[in-house]
Design a binder for these strands. Structure first.
Length: 140
DNA sequence: GCCAACGTTGGC
DNA sequence: GCCAACGTTGGC
């Protein structure tokens, strides 16, 4: 079971919008980067990820679940990129900010810290558990 | 709003 | 196939 992180600017697509879209989830369109694409290709239905607000907020705010495996992104005219579908599972009790993550030595190797521009990232299990705890959730 | 980092594009 | 120029992202 792998863990992931999805980044979004809240002004474009926020956690609240993700929650409002309900159980059937939404298409994670718009990824145009091969590293991010590779992450999505590796995802399996049922795996979970963090929902991270970039720019405004700069915090992990919720947990999402992959509900549809990698398939072509119809918004990509070139046909080179695909996407997965995700749904909101639950919010963190308290958002875990980038500052808080950077302050934890055990999280210094997170992709979020070292390659902040990557829009879809893998998260190590130890990182997942720790951030869930920091966010006030017992599990993931 | 600035700018560093990085991915992509296109001329050669 | 290299690499300079350019555009975009995202933290600050």
């Amino acid at each position: 079971m792998a863990y992931w992180l999805f980044k979004s600017e809240p002004s474009t697509w926020s956690w609240d919008m993700q929650v409002a879209s309900g159980e059937h989830g939404t298409e994670w369109t718009g990824v145009r980067n091969h590293l991010a694409k590779n992450q999505m290709q590796a995802m399996e239905v049922g795996e979970r990820g963090f929902f991270y607000h970039s720019n405004e907020g700069k915090a992990v705010v919720g947990i999402v679940e992959v509900v549809k495996p990698y398939h072509p992104d119809h918004t990509d005219a070139s046909g080179r990129f695909g996407m997965v579908d995700i749904k909101a599972v639950k919010p963190l009790r308290t958002p875990v900010t980038l500052d808080a993550i950077k302050a934890v030595p055990r999280l210094k190797d997170m992709v979020l810290v070292n390659n902040s521009r990557l829009s879809v990232q893998p998260v190590a299990e130890a990182e997942w558990v720790l951030i869930c705890e920091m966010g006030g959730l017992a599990d993931g």
